[in-house]
Amino acid sequence: MIKKISTICNKYFALLVIIIAIIALMRPNTFLWVVPRVSLLLGIIMFGMGMTLKKEDFKEVFTRPKDVLVGIIAHYIIMPAVAYALCVFLKLPKDIAIGVILVGCCPSGTASNVMCFIAKGDLALSVCISSISTILAPIFTPALILLLAGKWVDIPAAALFVDISKIVILPIVLGVVFNKVAGKTASRVVNVLPIVSVIAIVLIVGGVVGANSKKLITTAAIAIGAVVLHNLFGFLFGYLAAKVMKMDYAKRKAVSFEVGMQNSALGVSLAMNFFSPVSAIPAAIFSVWHNISGPTLASYWASKFKKVDK
């Protein structure tokens, strides 16, 4: 029953987020209680990620270091660079620009692994890239935000490092330890994780939309446009970067998803903790959009799986 519920939650995740966002927009007070608990919810998601990590997930670093390095570099160069370019080209308002850059500087989202699996991509490579990019986030995310968003606002890089470590790295480590110590209990808990993650992200989106219901009316169009372009350029440039490095078709798909899909929940948390509720809007929109674009692209690639690899 739990597995069936998990499957349903994953299948209709984007629809659930849209429904909650509409409710939060119409009745903002419904989810305002979530706002001070965003970091806690993200910590729960990261704890779940830690429980699913195995040493095998990192063996690609040693067996295929070039492929992993290409994915990590592409992720932390392409998405931040595209974010900055969109902010300048579209002349985004300050708070929205900060939010777009926050999303661009975040590590890969775990949903990228599911999309890679559906698309018949190199799943082992995808898992390794998302895991390593997450572990490196306390260093790269604050540094990139400082570099790119400094023209709009003062960036507390040291505080960002500490915060990301607390809400990302610490829960992951605790999840790994719990998995080792708890044994069979942990394996049962793992089955519930997809449901918990979906509920947590849906609540985070509801909280952000509720806190920004008035601002959303005036900023939604430009924010949605920036997020959609950001995500699509990420998929495209990630794929092209892998192709330039002469990686095969399965690897190109993995890198494309790892570049284009972000841990947008982290972007929401950082925005709410260090900047403004408005700057969390792009990350909230990204949570919805990349769970529409990702499955669409994955289904397209899955349909081409039987064609000759070029």
Rank of each mutant, 00 (worst) to 15 (best):
M1C: 01
K11L: 11
Y12M: 06
F13M: 10
A14K: 01
I18H: 00
I19P: 06
I19D: 03
A21T: 01
A21C: 03
L25S: 12
R27Y: 14
R27I: 15
P28H: 06
T30M: 15
V35H: 01
P36M: 06
V38A: 13
S39W: 03
L42Q: 05
I44Q: 06
I44D: 05
M49A: 08
M51E: 04
T52I: 10
K54E: 14
K55I: 13
F62L: 14
D67E: 15
V68E: 05
L69K: 05
V70C: 06
I72Q: 01
H75W: 01
Y76A: 04
P80V: 03
P80D: 03
A81G: 00
V82H: 00
C87F: 05
V88H: 10
K91A: 14
I98F: 09
G99E: 09
I101K: 03
A111F: 09
S112L: 08
S112K: 05
V114T: 11
F117V: 06
K120R: 14
G121M: 11
D122S: 13
D122I: 09
L123R: 01
S126F: 08
V127Q: 08
C128P: 03
S131R: 02
I132S: 00
I132P: 00
I132D: 01
T134S: 15
I139G: 03
F140L: 15
T141R: 01
T141Q: 10
P142D: 10
I145Y: 03
L146H: 12
A149G: 11
G150H: 09
K151C: 13
D154L: 09
D154M: 11
I155V: 12
A158T: 12
F161N: 00
D163M: 12
S165D: 07
L170Q: 04
L170I: 13
V173M: 10
V173N: 05
N179F: 04
T185S: 13
A186D: 05
S187V: 12
R188F: 13
V190G: 01
N191A: 13
V192I: 15
L193W: 13
I199P: 01
L203E: 08
V208S: 00
A211Y: 06
N212K: 02
N212R: 00
S213H: 14
T218L: 15
A220H: 08
A221P: 08
I222A: 13
I224K: 09
V227D: 11
V227N: 03
V228P: 07
N231Y: 10
L232Y: 12
F233M: 15
F235Q: 05
F235T: 07
F235P: 01
F237S: 04
A242P: 07
K243N: 13
M247N: 11
D248P: 04
D248I: 10
K253R: 14
F257A: 02
E258D: 15
V259L: 04
Q262T: 06
V268L: 09
S269L: 10
M272K: 11
M272E: 08
F274I: 06
P277F: 10
A280D: 08
A280K: 03
P282C: 06
P282N: 09
A283P: 05
I285T: 08
I285G: 02
W289D: 02
G294V: 07
Y300Q: 12
A302L: 12
K304C: 12
K304V: 10
F305V: 13
K306D: 15
V308C: 13
